[in-house]
Design a protein around this nucleic acid. Structure first.
Ligand code: FES
Ligand code: FES
Lengths: 146, 146
DNA sequence: CTAATTTAAGACAAGTAAGTCTGAATAAAC
DNA sequence: GTTTATTCAGACTTACTTGTCTTAAATTAG
């Protein structure tokens, strides 16, 4: 089982992070992405297609085609990706699975979870693709190993 | 999709919390649990069976039979339940799905996630079934609504 | 001992997520 | 215009999770 994001979403985060390494507008093929990230080819194709539909990526067919970021890297946060793929249910649902999550009828960890949930949210919102690109250029960073 | 725990695990947390309300040793039937918690009968049966196998619950067949906590309530934490059903992969896996999660090859949110993950862990470890029972007796608390 | 009630067990069905395959559409390169 | 490389689209398969059904085993009550 994946942790909090679906497998699709994990792949989307990885692929988008990888795209962030490339100069703006530079097209990257699915083939390159699947090779570097070890993600099933057609599965990734559909995911990127979805992100393109949502406006987060650009795509171009034919030779020299591929995918690139659909907006300035500073404007794309991890939250955009997660929201596009998995939605934002985790922000409103009870972590113990009770039918609602409100202060009126709280579960045993409602308070604690509230803080953690907000922490996850800010983790996603405060990290944009431009930052990631910058961090990833550090030599120890994952994905740059080839 | 459930948030961080599987549906089974959510059910397990709810059912165990409910059992915590009862006097120690008092048997509660699946029927009562499914009715109060709105969980599919046989599905819950298997989950409780599993928790019994792992020693967290006691079971007894026949009339007056049912399930009760398998150890003193103070000794059962939410982490025990989660670990029994979903395991503890969330403690060691990368939240972005990369093959490993170490400081040597960190992903973009490794640091932040580390803190949040530890927060989730302590949320689970520091909440035992006895506390839950106490809190749940407050009138506004979920599950006591009937 | 018999009947009733409950968990135990396993097969099965339904639903969802993940992954595969094939061909069409598009666009560049020659 | 033809070839080639790529995304797009949809059907299909596989795997996993969730949920259902039926029967057996155990235990209590009478
Ligand atoms: S009620 Fe459970 S997290 Fe809010
Ligand atoms: S490497 Fe991603 S969370 Fe640690």
């Amino acid at each position: 089982m994946s942790i909090i994001f679906s497998r699709q979403c994990e792949y989307a985060l990885q692929a988008t992070s990888y795209l962030a390494l490339k100069p703006a507008g530079k097209m990257t093929t699915i083939k390159e992405l699947t090779k570097k990230l070890n993600i099933p080819y057609h599965f990734l194709g559909k995911i990127l297609q979805n992100l393109t539909y949502k406006g987060l990526l650009n795509s171009q067919k034919g030779p020299t085609g591929g995918f690139s970021l659909g907006m300035p890297a500073q404007e794309i946060t991890l939250y955009h990706i997660v929201d596009a793929i998995d939605g934002n249910d985790f922000m409103t649902k009870c972590v113990m699975g009770f039918p609602e999550c409100t202060g009126k009828n709280p579960c045993a960890v409602h308070e604690k979870w509230g803080g953690l949930r907000d922490g996850i949210y800010s983790m996603l919102v405060n990290k944009n693709i431009a930052q990631i690109a910058k961090e990833m250029k550090k030599p120890e960073f994952r994905l740059l190993v080839d």
